[in-house]
């Protein structure tokens, strides 16, 4: 079922879909695609399992690499899953319907990014302590790793939505999407790994987390705006 059909079912009684209905529909659609939820997580775990095979199993070395590697892999997993963010809605025309509807496209994008985070970023963050354990992450880093990933993956879902919207009309956007979105992820990555490293070294990590939260606030305000504009451009194609 496409979002448009489900939307009309969910919203018929209220004379138009409310945001809550849109959220419910998007979540339902996302949860039905089990493979799309599992794949980023499996990618995350598999690539991180390759790391010790590549650099060797010395616990000290792995402990030094752990925060950065977990963050970079979470970034890649988010990025790779983002390609399909608007894909099916674009192909069956429901994206066009949403662009035409009286509901602002801004909120539709915000909700899609939020759902993307719920099914990708949230599980990635929840899984990260286990991977920290496997990579011998020092004990002081776990809490900060979890919180920084919760905040950071949400920002990345929002920023990536802009790239996904820009490339949705292209046939094979995968690598191009990575090319245009990755430089925009840099601040999130820097403050995310910085926070975890500070926590491990025994410094305060509150400021870095606060900056991550500020980046998330800015991304939540601005990224859907840019993504909505990008969707309108892509629909022109």
């Amino acid at each position: 079922m496409s979002s448009a059909e489900s939307l009309s079912m969910a919203g018929r009684n209220h004379g138009g879909p409310s945001l809550a209905a849109l959220l419910r529909v998007e979540l339902l659609l996302a949860l039905r695609k089990r493979a799309d939820i599992a794949n980023p997580l499996l990618f995350f775990v598999t690539v991180l399992a390759l790391l010790p095979l590549g650099v060797g199993p010395e616990p000290d070395l792995l402990a030094r690499l752990a925060p950065g590697m977990i963050w970079v892999m979470a970034l890649l997993a988010t990025l790779l899953s983002q390609e399909s963010l608007f894909r099916s809605d674009f192909e069956d025309g429901s994206l066009e319907q949403q662009a035409l509807s009286s509901q602002p496209l801004y909120f539709a994008v915000l909700i899609k990014a939020a759902v993307h985070w719920l099914v990708t970023g949230l599980p990635l963050a929840l899984l990260s302590p286990m991977l920290g354990l496997m990579l011998n992450l020092p004990a002081a880093g776990y809490f900060c790793l979890l919180v920084s990933l919760l905040l950071g993956t949400a920002s990345m879902s929002l920023i990536g939505a802009v790239g996904a919207a820009l490339t949705v009309a292209l046939r094979r956007p995968g690598l191009l999407l990575a090319l245009i979105v990755m430089p925009l992820y840099v601040p999130v990555l820097i403050f995310g790994t910085g926070a975890v490293q500070a926590a491990i070294d025994g410094y305060v990590f509150g400021p870095q987390l606060a900056i991550l939260a500020a980046l998330l606030a800015a991304a939540a305000a601005l990224a859907p705006l840019a993504a909505a504009g990008a969707i309108r451009i892509s629909l022109d194609n």
Binding site: I180, P183, L184, I233, S234, N237
Partner: peptide, 16 residues
């Protein structure tokens, strides 16, 4: 379409 998409990406980059 390429023009508009690039302009948008350039603007997003400027903010960043």
């Amino acid at each position: 379409v390429a023009d508009k998409a690039c302009a948008l990406l350039a603007l997003v980059g400027t903010v960043n």
